[in-house]
């Protein structure tokens, strides 16, 4: 393990009204690993994601990305630093094509503005071509190249999740946050997703994911972090977590219900 982790949360706290959604949560995500964030519904997992990506501001605590405190940074700035995400409730640009959805991810690595576009300068055209190349490449990577001109809303649920991943990858992230990527997928699609997440790691991208599919989590995560009522109750390798009595009581033993947290 390298000396400093890619992401370090320390004493992260966020409350909504009187509810402690996230309470003094601290954990590290090391370079090149796949880490799973698990716990019952309402445990604060998505809130942790929204804190990392700047959608929410923590009441207290620090989020260090590559040694740099990203608390109070704007979301788009955090994306530019190299943190990309997908959403639990799919948030694609539904009326736009799959290709344009992925081009949205390319945006933060491009520079041309309104004037460049109006004058259609040579470097602006070159940049457009490069972006198209990256976008098509990422669609190919997730297996959606053949559907690049389909409107996002016309894709199947599983493919919409893959499209969100392609859009996130197009931002050239070093760290990818997946919020229930297998939600609504069948067994075959889930297996494809597992392969895809492994390939993402092979590209050198660190992955943090929330997932209720324990099979998937146990298969691909090197480390699990377990939340309950906003408090971290355990962290460690999947094998250890499976044996942890508190985790069994809080989550693993309990039947899996599929109610969604809101975001």
């Amino acid at each position: 393990m390298s000396a400093s982790p890619l992401l370090r949360l320390s004493q992260l706290t966020k409350s909504f009204g009187g509810v402690m959604a996230v309470n003094q949560v601290s954990f590290d995500v090391d370079h090149g690993t796949i880490v799973g964030l698990i716990g019952p519904n309402g445990a604060g997992k998505t809130t942790v994601f929204n804190l990392i990506t700047g959608n929410y501001r923590p009441d207290s605590g620090e989020i260090l990305f590559d040694g740099r405190n990203i608390v109070n940074m704007r979301t788009n700035r955090i994306v530019t630093l190299g943190i990309a995400r997908t959403f639990q409730t799919i948030r694609l640009f539904q009326n736009m094509s799959a290709l344009e959805n992925v081009l949205a991810g390319c945006h933060c690595r491009m520079r041309s503005g309104a004037i460049g576009a109006m004058l259609r300068l040579p470097w602006q055209k070159r940049e457009e071509r490069q972006a198209l190349e990256i976008a098509v490449g990422e669609l190919e990577f997730v297996g959606l190249r053949s559907q690049l001109d389909q409107a996002a809303r016309n894709l199947s649920y599983g493919n919409q999740r893959l499209l969100e991943i392609a859009r996130a990858l197009a931002t050239k992230p070093r760290f990818l946050i997946l919020d229930e990527p297998a939600g609504g997928m069948n067994d075959y699609e889930t297996q494809v997703l597992v392969d895809l997440i492994n390939q993402i790691r092979e590209r050198g991208i660190t992955v943090l994911l929330i997932e209720h599919d324990m099979n998937l989590v146990m298969k691909i995560c090197e480390k699990l972090v377990v939340l309950e009522y906003g408090v971290m109750i355990a962290q460690g390798a999947p094998m250890e977590i499976q044996k942890d009595q508190r985790v069994i009581d809080a989550y693993l033993g309990a039947p899996d219900d599929d109610e969604d947290e809101d975001f």
């Binding site: 948030r91 736009m96 945006h107 309104a114 576009a117 940049e127």
Partner: peptide, 28 residues
């Protein structure tokens, strides 16, 4: 030309869903 550019697309992303646009790195 503006419509068919990074700038034009960015405005469309914001119109469609500004949270997703910011989450994709666009300064809405």
């Amino acid at each position: 030309r503006l419509e068919n550019s990074r700038f034009g697309r960015a405005l469309n992303y914001i119109r469609e869903d500004d949270v997703a646009a910011e989450g994709s790195g666009i300064d809405a």
